[in-house]
């Protein structure tokens, strides 16, 4: 309280100022539904203004694609969850470096491929024991067919895991995410020609490995 105000009170004179309690002028935080309706760039901007709930909306939008990509690189579901979390955490920490000249999905794929390849480089591929693999959807397949199918899947996974990094990434983005070569080039920082060449060499190696004697061990 100022000395003037104190003097006013002491002298029984009403002070000239009045105290007004005004509501904060900040708008209420947008609801999850409102955020979900916004475009990627708007969400990035809101997030950079210090509202992590905008990032939740981006996670909701892209977690399936990111998980699916990570799962193709990872030996198991739990690894893919860890990788997905790391991808989004890195994206969040580097969000102010996202330049709107590429789609956010391309940027996320780029981070995801980097995270997955780095993790794979740190931990070389190991053979996945058959019983550790996720269960196949229950159907009318008999046990033998199921086993055969699972074996084929594990052989394909193991063969992909042994490809050089860029070939592996190209195969996964092209075959399992159906990205056009232009977008693969943007994700991997390369050219359309290099993307096709990577795919060509990857397919040739895989064909040799899968139709060969089937020895995918060391």
């Amino acid at each position: 309280m100022s000395t003037r105000a104190a003097a006013c009170w002491a002298g029984g004179i009403r002070p000239e100022w009045t105290l007004t309690v005004a509501a904060s002028t900040d708008p209420p935080p947008p609801s999850p539904e409102a955020l979900a309706a916004l475009g990627d760039r708007a969400l990035v901007r809101i997030c950079l203004e210090g509202r992590p709930e905008a990032f939740d909306a981006l996670v909701e939008r892209y977690q399936r694609a990111v998980y699916r990509l990570c799962r193709r690189f990872a030996p198991a579901h739990e690894d893919a969850l860890d990788l997905s979390q790391e991808v989004f955490l890195r994206a969040f920490k580097g969000l102010d470096r996202f330049r709107g000249d590429a789609a956010l999905s391309t940027w996320l794929y780029r981070i995801a491929v980097n995270v997955c390849l780095n993790r794979a480089a740190a931990r070389p591929p190991r053979a996945v024991p058959l019983d550790a693999a996720a269960p196949l959807a229950a159907g009318e397949e008999d046990a033998a067919a199921r086993l055969e199918r699972r074996g084929r899947r594990d052989r394909v996974r193991a063969a992909i895991a042994r490809l050089p990094a860029r070939q592996r990434a190209t195969i996964i983005l092209r075959v399992y995410h159906e990205l056009p070569h232009e977008e693969i080039a943007a994700v991997l920082g390369t050219t359309v020609g290099a993307s096709k060449a990577n795919l060509f060499h990857a397919l040739r190696s895989l064909k040799r490995r899968l139709s060969g004697d089937g020895t995918e061990g060391r």
Partner: peptide, 24 residues
């Protein structure tokens, strides 16, 4: 064709809420 014959391992539908919460 051999590669496309290996579908994604889809996690349980509950996995998405759990993953989103974990990332959040």
């Amino acid at each position: 064709a051999a590669l496309r014959d290996v579908p994604d391992d889809e996690p349980s539908p509950l996995a998405w809420d759990l993953l989103a919460a974990r990332i959040g």
